[in-house]
């Protein structure tokens, strides 16, 4: 095999590209943390938590106010690169209900810039149950697309074709005595949970009780977000027992 061929084969290696099959649809986990559906030219992003910094500041924690700009910049980069026809924000896009009215004008412009030229759908989350005022885009509680159903919060038990967020999945693996932890997408071929995208969103280990019963442990893969690639690791390896 030539070097170029080897590199090509590595790029096409499903473990590194983040390609996965969900109810027969080919989806791709992007290292930025969004999910790309090439056939539909559809970009899905979960848990943006815009203005989380400002929201916490109103409760006394004066953490740096740059999170919204940082989150939108990263999302903008993904949109520019993938050029989606449609963007679905999977809920908890705004950290609290007031944000869509209190969002500073500069950030509002930045967000509108991202939305221009794409069809944009806000899905309701527990932080933002109502449609955002004065920002645009469609609003819905759930969205069915072919075999897939997009909603914010995963329903208990096994759910066919569900794509959700809410739980902020992360995985840790031990390699040569060192424990490494990353945000990840989790998918067992039946349902998928996206990583949280916002700059101030943490992760919840897939081993946590909150994920219990959601996936088939034998078929679960965690798609850990690397610097430039996706690292696909089996559910067994990360200690998911069902």
């Amino acid at each position: 095999m030539t070097l170029a061929a080897a590199r090509k084969s590595q790029e096409q290696d499903p473990a590194a590209t983040g390609m996965l099959d969900l109810r027969g649809e080919a989806l791709q986990v992007d290292p930025s943390g969004v999910v790309w559906w090439p056939d539909e030219r559809l970009l899905i992003v979960a848990d943006l938590h815009l203005e989380k910094g400002a929201s916490l500041a109103s409760r006394g924690a004066l953490i740096p106010p740059y999170d919204t700009a940082a989150t939108l910049a990263r999302l903008g980069e993904a949109i520019l690169r993938l050029r989606p026809a449609r963007v679905i924000a999977l809920g908890d896009s705004f950290h609290d209900e007031k944000v869509s009215t209190t969002l500073p004008e500069g950030l509002r412009q930045q967000l509108r810039g991202l939305m221009a030229g794409t069809e944009w759908v806000w899905i309701a989350g527990n932080h933002d149950p109502l449609p955002p005022a004065d920002i645009g885009g469609d609003f819905t509680a759930e969205l069915g697309l072919g075999p897939l159903l997009l909603r914010h919060e995963p329903q208990p038990g096994r759910a066919r074709g569900e794509v959700s967020g809410h739980l902020h999945p992360a995985a840790s693996v031990t390699v040569r005595g060192r424990s490494l932890r990353r945000r990840c997408a989790a998918c067992d071929g039946e349902r998928m949970i996206l990583p949280a995208f916002g700059a101030y969103t943490g992760g919840l280990n897939l081993r946590d009780d909150a994920f219990r019963g959601l996936f088939d442990p034998a078929r679960l893969n965690a798609y850990m977000l690397g610097a430039r690639t996706i690292h696909r690791v089996s559910g067994r390896r990360i200690g998911y027992t069902g």
Partner: peptide, 22 residues
């Protein structure tokens, strides 16, 4: 001792490699 510095990415890739071998 641990291997230091930037090796994390490669270690992650190694975890993924195990799976490929499997």
């Amino acid at each position: 001792e641990f291997i230091a510095g930037e090796a994390n990415e490669e270690l992650l890739a190694e975890a993924a490699d195990d799976l490929i071998r499997e």
